[in-house]
Every structure is written in C-alpha cells, then in structure tokens.
Amino acid sequence: MNIQTQYSYEKIWTDTNEKDLLRIITEEVGDADPSGTLMYVKEAIKSGKTISVGSCKFKLKEKNAN
C-alpha cells in the first residue's frame, strides 16, 4: 500500500513510508495510540478517501501517478 501525505501548508503530495507515517501521526495525536490511528487511516483510504489527522492529510497513491 503506497500512502501519500500532505501537510496543510504544502501544495504537493509526498510518498511516505510506514516509519514516517507513524512519526507523523505521533506528532499529530501525541500518545493517543498512533498504531491504531494508522490502521484506521489505512482502512479508510482504501476506498479513495482522503483522511485528515491534525494538520496532515493521508491518501492512497493513485496507480497512474508517477
């Protein structure tokens, strides 16, 4: 699963690995179960949704995108 992230102040989406996803979520939610939040994000974006956690958005990378 290729996940992209975008902070509210950014204009482009960035491919993000799992380690960095957990770091970002930890920064955004603190100690509120970052692993559980990541599992929720992964499940929610499967249908093409964009999910916001704090000031960061998460989406599934489009297959035809570079």
Rank of each mutant, 00 (worst) to 15 (best):
M1Y: 14
N2C: 11
I3K: 06
I3T: 10
I3G: 04
I3P: 02
Q4N: 02
T5A: 08
Q6I: 05
Q6S: 01
Q6K: 08
Y7W: 11
S8E: 01
S8Y: 13
Y9M: 05
W13H: 06
T14G: 02
D15L: 10
T16G: 01
N17V: 00
N17T: 01
N17Q: 04
E18R: 03
E18S: 06
L21S: 02
L22W: 12
R23N: 04
R23A: 07
T26V: 03
T26I: 03
E27D: 14
V29H: 10
V29T: 06
V29G: 02
D31S: 13
A32D: 14
D33N: 04
P34G: 04
G36A: 06
T37C: 11
L38F: 07
M39C: 09
Y40W: 14
V41Y: 12
K42M: 13
A44M: 15
A44C: 15
K46A: 10
S47Q: 11
T50N: 12
I51E: 14
S52N: 06
V53F: 05
V53A: 03
G54Q: 05
S55P: 00
K57T: 14
K59T: 02
L60D: 12
E62H: 12
E62V: 04
K63R: 07
N64D: 02
N64C: 02
A65M: 07
N66P: 00
N66D: 08
